[in-house]
Structures are given as C-alpha cells and as structure tokens.
Amino acid sequence: MTPISPAASDALARWLDTRRALEGSAENTIEAYRGDVAGFLGFMTLHKGEPQGLAALERIGVSDMRAWMADARAQGLSPRSLARKLSAVKTFMRWLAEREGIEITAILSARSPRFTNKLPRPLAEDAAQAMIDRVELQSETPWVAARDAAVVTLLYGCGLRISEALGLTGADAPLPGVLRIRGKGGKERPVPVIAAARDAVDAYLRLCPHVLTASGPLFVGVRGGALSARLIQDVMAKARMQLGLPSSATPHAMRHSFATHLLAAGGDLRAIQELLGHASLSTTQAYTAVDTARLMEVYDKAHPRA
C-alpha cells in the first residue's frame, strides 16, 4: 500500500481510536476502516503526485473522486464494496473536517454506486436439521463430532454468529436458560437457549478430553486451543456437498434460517431484532422479504399460470 503523509496517518490513527473507544467498533471493523481510508489516501498521493497532508485534502475535487472510484471498479471491486469504502472515507473526512476546519464538499458530494441488497438465503427447516445431523458424521472422533454438532446447533437454535458461538467460555457451561451474548459493537443481549442446544453442548462436554477453564474457550480444537471458525466452515462445506445444498449453506446461513423460521412461525419482528442483536430494525426487515418470497414461490407452484 502506498505510504501516506505523517499528518494523515496520525489523523487516521486518532479517528480509529475514537471509533474503538467511544463507539465500541469491533477490531475487524476497525481494520476494515483502516484499509479503506488508507487505500483512499494512498491513491490520492499517486493520483495527485504529492503527499496528501491535511491541507492537500482540501484540494481533492469531484474529478479526483471519480478517478478513485473508477480505479476501484477497474480492479474488480463490486458496487457494494465500493459503497462501503466510500462510506468509510466520508465518515473519516467528516470527523477530520470538524476538528481541522477543512473544506470537503467534493468528497461528501460523491455519490455511492447503486447496488441491489441481497436477501438472506436461509435453509428450509428440514435442510437445517439435516445439516446438523450430517455435520456430526464428518469426524470419526466422537468428541469432535459432538463439538461440531453443538456449534452448528447453537447457530441455528439460538441465532448466534459463528464468532459469538466460538466466543463462549467454560464459564458458560452448562448452558443456562438464557445466555448473555456480547455481539457487534460490544452490545450485550439476552438469548434464550433451546433444549436441543443445551443437550448438544452437554453431549460435547461429556466427551471432550480437555480440561475447560472458566476463562478459556468452551469449544476447543484437538490440541485444546480455541476452535477456529474456518474449521466449522470447512465441516459445513463438506456436509452441504453431501446433502446437495448450495454454496450459500454457510454458518451464517444457519443464523438466517433461525430468524426466517421464527418469523414464519409468527415471531414478532422487534423481538427477532433483539434476539439477533441487530442495531437497526431495517436489517431485520430483510427477513420479511425472504418470507414473502417463499410464500410467493409456494403460491406459484400451487397456482401455475396457464
């Protein structure tokens, strides 16, 4: 990545510290912001032929923004990813303008590329259960098989993110009736634990050969260290190939399935928002579109056009 000026680098570091401290942004999000903004500043250094100090940022014009966006698209960046980068750049520049009094109208006037929001792709109820059952057959080692099934059951039965499931510690065992999950942005939410999830974790605990500590991970690898999300992704990839399921049948799809099936059963949208830990109701509302699409598919099959 092209080096950026010391002043811009210092401003970026201070902005990231602010987001980390005051807004509770996750470290992965912080690193994504860092890459997006540093990449933008590095491009402007090459494009304009001079280090982009704070004063130079004021001279960024509409044509410069178009050049940056065109370069990103030429490198194969999707409209969705470019919109994310532009949002990060604008957020950083607004913060900088408030503190330095610089003019950034051209940057803020850049229009985000249009893109179509992808609907979540949940599994059917029988496919979700088949996935859990098949995952348990991927390992010949009984405790590993029980562990993998327990993780996937938590994703589907409690709507957890894979990072949240793997973030559970020995202090969470045996699972209580309600888990306190710390999700994105450090926000905590209560999540009811269904009997199937509690039983699956209990089965894993009975077979696990490692000593689990209160502060250590609940789910461990074969050597006793923290279990990798990649391993669960790989196990599910093998299972979906055997079941003939699409590539969208990922760990996150189990969370989508939890929400969609709960909504189809009459669950309240606001309650589902709280269970998932979505900051905005609009994010959860995507599941209403999924449910409507499913109903229309059933209707079309039952009433084919002449």
Rank of each mutant, 00 (worst) to 15 (best):
A265R: 15
Y287L: 12
A145F: 02
E27M: 00
A72F: 01
G183H: 06
E164L: 03
A106R: 12
A237I: 01
A128N: 02
C158E: 08
I181T: 06
K118E: 08
A88L: 03
E23R: 14
V298H: 10
L54M: 07
M236N: 01
A74Q: 11
L218Q: 07
M69C: 02
M1E: 14
P113C: 11
V235Y: 00
A21Q: 13
R111E: 13
L16R: 09
S282R: 09
S257D: 05
A149G: 12
D17R: 07
R294I: 03
M93V: 12
A67H: 14
A271C: 06
L276Y: 04
G224C: 02
P176Q: 10
G157V: 02
E297I: 02
A197C: 09
A11I: 00
Q273K: 15
L168K: 12
I181C: 08
G225N: 13
L119W: 01
G101L: 03
P174E: 15
V201F: 08
I162G: 00
R84N: 01
P217D: 08
T260F: 03
L160E: 02
S163K: 10
D234F: 00
S112G: 10
G267E: 10
N117K: 14
S139F: 01
S248A: 15
L269E: 06
L54D: 05
A226F: 06
R305H: 10
A165S: 05
L275N: 10
V37Y: 03
R59M: 12
N28W: 01
R19D: 07
T213Y: 09
D268I: 15
T2D: 13
A253G: 03
L218D: 04
V211K: 15
H47M: 04
P217M: 11
L263I: 03
L168N: 08
M44N: 01
S163E: 13
R99D: 14
G225S: 12
P51C: 13
A197T: 08
G244S: 12
V62L: 08
T29E: 05
A149K: 03
A165Y: 00
S112A: 15
I107H: 09
L137Y: 08
K48I: 06
A173P: 02
A165C: 04
A229L: 04
Q233W: 03
A259G: 11
A271P: 07
M131A: 14
M1G: 15
A38I: 02
R198I: 03
T2V: 14
P192H: 11
V220P: 09
T153H: 00
K90S: 07
T105L: 11
P142G: 05
F219N: 00
T292Y: 12
G42Q: 05
T213C: 07
A271K: 10
P79L: 04
R73W: 00
A279D: 13
R206A: 15
V222T: 11
R114T: 15
